[in-house]
Design a protein around this nucleic acid. Structure first.
Length: 838
RNA sequence: GGGCGGAUAGCUCAGUGGUAGAGCGCUAGCCUUACAAGCCAGUGGUCGUCGGUUCGACCCCGACUCCGCCCACCA
């Protein structure tokens, strides 16, 4: 390893004005964040006198109990770049921050804590349990926000909202009541997805199917009074033998010749006293699959449920809420589903009814949160009729009122909304917005109300109870773009900042959140909640695998920012595992880690941010590479050192903020290049191509400004031509100061640190964050200068190549002879001799 | 079963109808008074396969192979 450790003094140890040799993020970052906060840099204005156009981004509220992960870092960085850029362009920028109570996720975490204490939520009771979650919220809720501040996020923290704040809860209740009045929220008893671990209903979205190897198990039902010479048994194929306890029919295809003689016959259930009919159904049955006979369990399968409705079959629930066989299951009662499966198979075999087993690939529906296999169960829940809202949400995108970027997501959005099912919005949890419905014990009327009720709306009885259920956590999230602004009140903030400009978030919550905000926004506000939807990908490890605690490949962004030894890094990636094991896994996920020593160095926030910006947002996967961060840390250091170098030449200058006049080739050229770079940056940010924007500035600053312009300026400053010196100094000062402004949205800390030291125009704001973002006119497109400079650069490059080929020592001067048939070229080369010689 | 994306340098990825780019890596030379976290010169790619359109295709079209993701009730 060639890296050399350099001992540098901390900046704080240096006399005022003197700068350390290398950029040290740690000392700089905290100081400037505090300064920005003090100066109110991030504050959006609702003052009537403020005529700036609004630019609004609502931050996806992180889970209140969560801690910062790479996904947050990506979100925070991208949004901060957008917001800072627009703020500098003179917009009244509001980045609305918040936190989400994250119903099921948070409740699960706290229940796990209780479990370690040997308690359940039932032991505590509802009230105590809620208190417990609130205190956990207080304890951990602030942490993630502090972490976002470390990232430099310029949100308007004074407007911070929590989804269970009283005003947010009021908005939730208002929305619920209105939708209920409009007949769009209703109660129904039907088959829903049941998480028997969390013991709650789930929406379709919260169920993830996972491929698994199972088996297709065949067993026989005995035919009662078979036709003479006809079959005496009917063999069915199933992946879930235990559900046969709830079978109320067996279906065959009406056209299947094998089973014609069984139409209308009854079968004997081997374990419970029930006769079940053979029915014919061409929708459910595929003659070619399995045995062509399907057992029908209406209470535990979506297809069978529909079949049951078609044929008027009884629905026999055989499961308890905690996932065991109930009393309907006879001798099997009390067994967990997986145990019941074994037991039923064994019992069938003992009765001689087993007919075969084949391996079979199947999709297991699992709870997104608890991970257990979800059971379809018949249950009474609150639902929302989403179709009418979905149509409006589709129309908003179709009309261009809202644009989705990258565009490829549009189809996905359309497809989901076009096929949307009613949304099961009630959860049997204790943490969340309680459903504002009161059940009358006397007349069983259900009163839905904005205010807490003490008596039944219908019969006046005081014997009423509020519905124990809470709402799906995404219900409150769907209101976010306007609830945070004060809705249902017509507040000045709501009037000014609705709709938002951009909704930036991960594509993984396109349905959960974005589509639902679209539905609610159009429905309640009459306007789509944002002009653009910007979707970024998933941060994955270096090899492309999703980050997860199971794989041990997560990285705490703060460990990259502040530096951390691998002991620490790995103990977070794979908690509880021995170091060697965890570190091995970690190195597998990040091959480049092999090139590191004992840990990650202190990269600084800016380096991490610039790295995150450098990935194309259209990539679905963002493979984070520590090596890449290192590269961009070098860039931050480059910026720092360029200013350190330039400072002595420019610090005494008076600058105007206007592009200075330039006659010399290099000066004209760098202004021209700057004009283009700055334009590319703005174009990139506006098109949500931060990779293009950041890369344009990166190459401008390093390859053109540092490697050429600064090098060419050296002989000028060391020379005797005072006019040239003065012009070059002014151009240099201008380009440096403007570059810092151009780079600020991406790397806010180092740019602020440096901007405070360089000459600035009179009347400049207190922070670079409030200074104007440069436009192309801050430079000066100059095709002639670019052409001439291009030629010069090629000549110099060629000369260097020759030297290198002949291994001429860099310190040694050699004669160079240039020939050209073109008079202009000869003139140019002669004029720029100094540059070539150097 | 439907839909979407990807396949480009050793690795991770940009990209354009007209001699292929970046970062990291690798090789060689430089401690040049901003930066060795640097400078400088190099190395490195039949742009997944097969067809088609075109004067010309890595790019457009079709087919295929291999990966990945999303949606969907095949027991």
């Amino acid at each position: 390893m060639r890296a050399v450790r350099i001992r540098v003094r901390r900046m704080s140890e240096l006399p005022a004005g003197e700068m350390a040799k290398a950029y040290e993020p740690q000392t700089v970052e905290r100081r400037w964040y505090e300064y920005w906060t003090q100066q109110g840099v991030f504050r959006a204005s609702v003052a009537a006198s403020d005529s700036r156009p609004p630019y609004v981004v609502a931050m996806p509220p992180p889970n209140v109990t969560g801690s910062l992960h790479m996904g947050h870092a990506l979100m925070g960085t991208l949004e901060d770049v957008l917001v800072r850029h627009k703020r500098m362009q003179g917009y009244n920028a509001l980045w609305q921050p918040g936190m989400d109570h994250a119903g099921i996720a948070t409740q699960t975490v706290v229940e796990r804590q209780l479990k370690r204490e040997g308690l359940t939520r039932q032991d505590l009771g509802r009230e105590k349990f809620e208190e417990r979650i609130w205190s956990w919220k207080e304890q951990s809720g602030g942490r993630i926000l502090e972490q976002l501040k470390t990232l430099g996020c310029s949100a308007d923290w004074e407007r911070l909202k929590f989804t269970m704040d009283p005003d947010m809860s009021r908005a939730v209740r208002e929305a619920f009541v209105r939708l209920h009045e409009q007949g769009l929220i209703y109660r129904d008893t039907r088959l829903i997805n049941w998480d028997w671990d969390s013991q709650t209903a789930l929406s379709d979205l919260e169920v993830e199917s996972e491929e698994a190897m199972g088996e297709l198990y065949e067993f026989a039902y005995e035919v009662i009074n078979p036709v003479a010479g006809g079959p005496t048994e009917l063999v069915v194929a199933t992946t879930r033998p235990e559900t046969m306890l709830g079978d109320t029919a067996v279906a065959v295809h009406p056209d299947d010749p094998r089973y014609t003689s069984l139409h209308g016959k009854k079968l004997k259930h081997p374990f419970v006293a029930r006769e079940i009919p053979v029915i014919t159904d061409s929708i459910l049955v595929d003659m070619a699959f399995g045995t062509g006979a399907v057992k029908v369990t209406p209470a535990h399968d979506f297809n069978d449920f529909a079949t049951g409705k078609r044929h008027g079959l009884p629905e026999i629930n055989v499961l308890t809420l905690d996932g065991k066989i109930n009393e309907q299951g006879g001798n099997f009662a009390g067994l967990l589903v997986k145990d019941a499966r074994k037991a039923v198979k064994k019992a069938l075999a003992e009765k001689g009814l087993e007919r075969g087993v084949k391996p079979h690939k199947l999709q297991l529906p699992k709870s997104q949160r608890s991970g257990v296999v979800v059971e379809p169960m018949i249950s009474t829940q609150w639902f929302m009729n989403t179709k009418p809202l979905a149509d409006k949400a589709l129309a908003a995108v179709a009309s261009g009122e809202t644009v989705i970027l990258p565009e490829e997501w549009r189809k996905t959005y359309d497809h989901w909304l076009n096929n949307i099912q009613d949304w099961c919005i009630s959860r049997q949890l204790w943490w969340g917005h309680r459903i504002p419905a009161w059940h009358c014990q006397k007349c069983s009327h259900i009163s839905v109300s904005r205010n807490d009720l003490t008596k039944c709306e219908k019969c006046g009885s005081e014997s009423i109870q509020q519905d124990p259920d809470v709402l799906d956590t995404w219900f409150s999230s769907a209101l976010w773009p306007f609830s945070t602004l004060g809705w249902p009140e017509q507040t000045p903030a709501l009037q000014r900042f609705y709709p938002s400009t951009d909704m930036e978030t991960g594509y993984d919550i396109l349905f959960f959140w974005v589509a639902r905000m679209m539905m609610f926004g159009v429905h309640f506000m009459g306007k789509a909640p944002f002009k653009r939807v910007l979707l970024h990908g998933l941060v994955v490890d270096e090899t492309g695998d999703k980050m997860s605690k199971v794989k041990g490949n997560t990285i705490d962004p703060l460990d990259l920012i502040h530096g951390s030894d691998f002991q620490t890094v790995v103990s977070k990636a794979l908690p509880g595992a021995p170091f060697e094991e965890a570190f091995t896994k970690f190195k597998k996920a990040y091959p480049s880690v092999a090139q590191f020593g004992e840990g990650f160095p202190e990269y600084g926030t800016d380096a991490l941010r610039f790295t995150l910006c450098s990935y194309s947002p259209q990539a679905k996967r963002i493979a984070l590479s520590p090596k890449r961060i290192e590269g961009y840390r070098h860039f931050c250091n480059k910026v720092y050192n360029a200013v350190r170098f330039a400072l002595p030449s420019i610090e005494k200058l008076q600058v105007t903020g206007q592009t200075p006049p330039a006659t010399l080739l290099a000066n004209r050229w760098i202004l021209s290049r700057f004009a283009e770079a700055v334009e590319a940056s703005t174009r990139g940010i506006d098109a949500f191509r931060l990779d293009d924007g950041s890369s344009a500035l990166y190459h401008f600053f390093w390859d053109e400004l540092c490697d050429w312009f600064l090098e060419l300026s050296k002989p000028v400053f060391q020379g005797t031509d005072e006019a040239a010196k003065s012009e070059t100094a002014l151009v240099l000062a201008h380009v440096i100061e403007s570059s810092l402004r151009a780079l600020h949205p991406y790397i806010p800390f180092v740019t602020e640190e440096l901007w405070q030291r360089v000459p600035r125009a009179p009347g400049h704001p207190a922070s670079v964050a409030l200074a104007e973002y440069p436009t192309a006119t801050a430079g000066r497109p100059d095709a002639e200068a670019e052409a001439k400079m291009g030629l010069l650069m090629r000549v110099i490059g060629a000369a260097r190549s020759i030297r290198s080929e002949y291994t001429v020592h860099p310190g040694r001067a050699v004669p160079l002879e240039l020939r050209s048939n073109n008079a202009d070229t000869r003139a140019l080369l002669a004029a720029e001799q100094v540059a070539i010689v150097t």
